[in-house]
Design a protein around this nucleic acid. Structure first.
Length: 579
RNA sequence: CGGGAUGUGGCUCAGUCUGGUAGAGCGCUGCGUUCGGGACGCAGAGACCGGAGGUUCAAAUCCUCUCAUCCCGACCA
């Protein structure tokens, strides 16, 4: 491709509405343009990067035995009503009506459509397993789209769905996808980590997220410094507390203390002269319409996802002020496990069973209680892991130290089980002629988000530093001809050699000053920059720069193809990639 | 949906407080000079100042409403 005929509208300044570096650079390098909030045009350069990601993903899907299909983006409401998600999915589902007034939605994901497709076509165990995937534009009406391609409303996703005869088969499919994802992200050149994840609203037994490690990530992951353990914070289990249950240990009788105006943990502790780990924090939630109380130590944070999963609920939300008053008979800040309204189950974090003699709210205004014994004074439904893991906690799998890092979710694999096949009657006949539900899995990769993530992970002050596997062009040949036509002519010749070598290169033959060409090459982030100038031509050399490291070497014009091939191999190797 | 901020040529912004009929830099067009890290000179094109209504002799500027965008939060396969 000759850049003199290519459309790359670069910007010298950061766009005013871009916050994160990937968004700024995607705009500045002329790769995307915003149409409206969370919705982007992909320009030629940006689309090239996206297509390269998609190509690698397709190759790994195909290698794993999945088959590409393409499903409609507009989906009829009745399919979503069948699974109940028409009501459950919420406002993220963009709904629309056709001219007859029939309801449709724009597909945020395709479990309904794929299950409908498969149930109509697959009737025998002999046809299973199957794994179908697509690379397609998705629409999710996010409450707050942000950060450019990182969290758009419209985005490109690869979604795959597996159908198996039984759990064992589903597990095999799951791990095949897990491995395919590892292979794909490795080939793309991302530094990533698969972590345990909550399966969220989509449901299912277990799941992993693939996280690109980057400071700007919206997710926090806990990972072990010595073993392979890694988990999204909302999923990360806390190791069971070390020690015996002492919740029945002897303790003076409960005593009420006045704590006028002391609402928060910090206030109460300061007032009573105790440390937060001596206090029991009581939090009230509503799970699927019913009130629930949860206890954690004063210095801990309750993980509502764990609470929801423990109860087996779908929706969980904090009780509002009115409900708190109703349940505790007191303003917010004085809730406790003793004397709560009748019938509110109380769940306690596991580590609370290690101690006794707690301070807690008294369910009365401006009052707390001390000498609380959970075993003696109240009924605990269950002691369970309910809190967020903390950096000082041991690894739940091996006991070593852990650390927190930020990550961007670029892939997610779920084992769905029969959640959708049961609701949609996706059945087949087994060897015995007996009807069975298909066991499903689903697997997503955020294709457009990967391009943004790659920039988040690989950039410097001058611009993007793309991995060669997904760079819009693998290499740029910059010709500094000016008035010297011989330079451009030789440049063209070398460019032809690159093309003949099968290199995805472009040729900067524009009538621009050298500084402009260099600055834009750095901004766009071609991994390999080749520069041919008048002096170089006279001396028989081409300058070669590794964008990532900045290292420059000289390649001979005589024998250019061989020298370039060797250098190219080195560049790819530095990225841990194979050309 | 709560809280905050911003809308002025393609882009980044000034001008708004204190009303007087729109500016700069970049980009774009032409000519000339320049030509190894986002050059310079000259000459141009390009904006009814997000939209609607109001106040006023007069509104980018003041008032009301509205739309859009961004940030924080809640939310989120």
């Amino acid at each position: 491709m000759r850049l003199s005929r290519y459309y790359i509208p670069t910007l010298k300044e950061d766009p005013a509405d871009a916050e994160v570096v990937s968004h700024k650079l995607l705009m500045r390098a002329g790769m995307v343009r915003k149409l409206t909030s969370g919705i982007y045009n992909y320009l030629p350069l940006g689309l090239r990067a996206i297509n390269k990601v998609a190509r690698i993903v397709r190759e790994e899907m195909d290698r794993a035995g999945a088959m590409e299909v393409s499903m409609p983006m507009v989906q009829p409401a009745d399919l979503w009503q069948e699974t109940g998600r028409w009501d459950f999915y919420g406002k993220e589902l963009l709904r629309l009506k056709d001219r007859h007034g029939r309801d449709y939605c724009l597909g945020p994901t395709h479990e309904e459509v794929i299950t409908d497709l498969v149930r109509g076509e697959i009737k025998s165990y002999k046809q299973l397993p199957v794994n179908l995937y697509q690379v397609q534009t998705k629409f999710r009406d996010e409450i707050r789209p942000r950060f450019g391609l990182m969290r758009g409303r419209e985005f490109i996703m690869k979604d795959a769905y597996s159908f198996d005869r039984d759990e064992a088969g589903a597990e095999t499919s799951y791990w095949a996808m897990f491995e395919a994802y590892k292979a794909a992200f490795s080939r793309i050149g991302l530094r990533f980590k698969p972590v345990q994840a909550d399966s969220g609203a989509i449901g299912g037994d277990f799941s992993h997220e693939f996280m690109v490690l980057a400071e700007t990530g919206e997710d926090t992951i806990a990972s072990c410094k010595s073993c392979q353990f890694g988990a999204n914070l909302e999923k990360a289990m806390v190791a069971p507390p070390a020690g015996d249950c002492r919740c029945d240990a002897p303790c003076p009788p409960i005593e009420q203390v006045d704590t006028p105006g002391q609402h928060t943990v910090a206030e109460v502790c300061a007032f009573l002269g105790i440390t937060p780990d001596k206090l029991v924090k009581t939090l009230l939630f509503v799970v699927d319409g019913d009130p629930v109380a949860a206890l954690v130590r004063g210095d801990r944070e309750l993980n509502d996802v764990k609470l929801r999963n423990l109860i087996g609920g779908n929706e969980i939300e904090m009780a509002d002020e009115a409900l708190v008053r109703k349940l505790t008979g007191a303003p917010v800040g004085f809730a406790g496990p003793v004397g709560l309204a009748e019938g509110v189950p109380v769940y306690a974090d596991a580590e609370l069973c290690l101690g006794t003699d707690w301070v807690a709210g008294a369910n009365a205004a401006d009052t707390h209680i001390r000498y609380l014994s959970l075993g003696r004074d109240c009924t605990i439904e269950k002691f369970a892991d309910l809190r967020f893991i903390e950096p000082t906690d041991p690894c739940p799998e091996c006991g070593s130290a852990i650390e927190f890092t930020k990550g961007i979710e670029v892939g997610h694999v779920f084992k769905l089980g029969t959640k959708y096949s049961k609701k949609m009657e996706a059945t087949f006949l087994d060897e015995n002629g007996k009807t069975q539900y298909m066991v499903m899995g689903c697997y997503g990769i955020g294709v457009s988000r990967i391009v943004a993530s790659a920039i988040e992970q690989n950039h410097d002050d001058a611009g993007c530093c793309f991995p060669p596997s997904i760079a819009p062009f693998e290499a740029v040949l910059i010709s500094l001809g000016g008035k010297d036509e011989a330079v451009d002519a030789k440049g063209d010749e070398l460019y032809q050699q690159l093309i003949a070598l099968g290199v995805d290169a472009c040729f900067d033959d524009r009538k621009e000053r050298p500084g402009v060409k260099f600055a834009e090459a750095d901004l766009i982030g071609y991994p390999m920059q080749l520069v041919l100038g008048g002096k170089g031509l006279a001396n028989g050399i081409v300058e070669a720069k590794d964008r990532k490291t900045g290292e420059k070497i000289e390649l001979p014009i005589n024998g250019f193809a061989e020298a370039f091939t060797a250098w190219r191999k080195e560049i790819w190797t530095r990225w841990g990639l194979e050309a």
